[in-house]
Computed example of a mutant assay.
Amino acid sequence: MRRRSILLALPAGLVTLAGCGDDSSDKGKSGKSSPSGDASSAAPSAPPSPKLVEGPLPAITAGGKFGEKPTLAKSSGDPSKDLAVKTVIAGNGATIAENDYLQAHYLGQIWASGKVFDNTFDRKAPILMQLKQGATLEGWRYALAGKKAGSRVEMAIPPAYGFAEQGNPQFGIKASDTMVFVFDVQATFNAKSSAKGKVVAQNDSAVPKVGTNTDGKAPSIEIPDGDAPTKLVAEYVIEGDGPELKATDTVLVQYKGVLWEGGKEFDSTYKRSDLTSFSLQQVVKGWSQGLTGKKVGSRVLVVVPPKLGYGDNPPSGSDIKKDSTLVFTVDILAKS
């Protein structure tokens, strides 16, 4: 079962402007989307903040280590009407806050039947999700906020904080079903997150030079004198040690974009104080080609010639003109 992106909509900025496909490319053979938080499936408005209680919760009978696929016993008795949350394994990473992005594995099971309806462990692909109202299940928001990366968290989400009266028929979740989840939170990211790795020498005077600061502030981009390159440029500024990106991956990034001509900034996650996540299949060719094969944790200079950017059809209302060469610094924070 291949999930659809956790995001409810493409983020602001470049990805929104560049996205040209529907969600079918990320749906996989089953045609099912994730039960995690599609806008059409989740409750139309957020309920009041729930009361958090410690149980009841079904026992984890196998796969008890962090990162292992857990097996849950079938629940007995009635679930709590409140949100039951338990930290099974306490991590020592960064504390998760509202609006953070998480990289995590999870398993979901229906309380009444014990049926497992989804899990990322078998797919060997953790999810990337933003802990934000309207971007994911309300139960996840409240259960995971305040926990630390590296933690295993078990929760039982009553319908009001899951899919409410709509349920999720694709996954056999009825309107009355309480859902049980086990989350292994691998990492958390926020607007101050930056690349981590080895600084790479920038010796080519014909391409822009990018700042190497990793303090969460936007790096500088110095445009050289001379003509813009006619071919795609994609070079490490900081080389991370994470896995290489595939052309089908979803990535989480910080980025800033400027025009080669004049160096004017036209887009930046740093200015919005918000990261962005997208599929490499949903962006301009210069991004998909330039980032494919690069390592997670890296900062990459990407110079996109018009034929791999917007060409003679720039986004309406933007500062990008026809046949503009675009220059980006991209910090690759995570992938799924």
Rank of each mutant, 00 (worst) to 15 (best):
G286M: 01
G242L: 01
V253K: 12
Y236C: 01
L252W: 03
G262C: 05
E239V: 04
G262R: 05
A234K: 09
G286A: 01
L275E: 07
S277P: 12
L280K: 00
K264W: 06
G263I: 02
D241A: 08
F278W: 14
Y255F: 13
F266H: 03
L245A: 08
L280V: 00
Y255M: 07
E265W: 06
D274I: 12
G257L: 05
A247C: 08
Y255L: 06
W287L: 11
Y236D: 01
A234Y: 11
K285C: 08
L252F: 04
Q281K: 15
S279E: 02
L291N: 10
L245W: 07
S268A: 06
E265P: 08
S273G: 12
V253R: 10
E244A: 14
V258Y: 08
T276H: 07
D267I: 02
P243M: 06
W260F: 15
Y236T: 01
Y236R: 00
D249K: 07
Q282A: 13
Y255T: 09
S279N: 05
K256A: 15
T250M: 14
S288F: 13
A247I: 11
Q282L: 09
W287S: 07
K285Y: 10
T250Y: 10
I238L: 01
G242W: 04
G263E: 01
G242C: 02
V237W: 00
G290Y: 05
V283I: 07
V251R: 04
F278Q: 13
L245K: 09
T276I: 09
A234R: 11
S273N: 14
Y255I: 07
R272A: 04
E235S: 14
L252G: 04
S288G: 14
G286L: 00
G257N: 07
L259H: 06
S288D: 14
V284S: 10
S288Q: 13
E265T: 12
Q281Y: 13
S288A: 15
V253N: 09
A247K: 11
T250E: 14
A247G: 10
W287F: 14
G263M: 02
S273T: 10
V237T: 00
T250F: 12
E244P: 06
E239L: 02
Q254E: 07
T248G: 12
L252D: 02
E244Q: 10
K256E: 15
A247R: 11
D267V: 04
Y236V: 00
E235W: 07
V283Y: 06
L252N: 02
E244I: 08
S279M: 04
F266W: 03
F278I: 13
G242R: 02
P243N: 09
G290P: 05
D267C: 03
K256Q: 15
L245F: 07
S273V: 09
K246R: 12
F278H: 14
D241L: 03
Y236G: 01
V237R: 00
I238C: 01
G257W: 07
R272C: 01
W260Q: 09
L245V: 08
T250I: 13
Y270N: 08
G286P: 01
V237P: 00
V283Q: 05
Y255E: 07
L252Q: 02
D267N: 04
K285L: 12
V251I: 06
F266G: 04
V237E: 00
G262D: 03
V258S: 06
G240A: 05
L291V: 10
E261H: 11
T250R: 15
V258Q: 06
A247W: 11
G290N: 04
E244G: 09
L280N: 00
S277W: 08
F278S: 15
V251L: 03
W287Y: 10
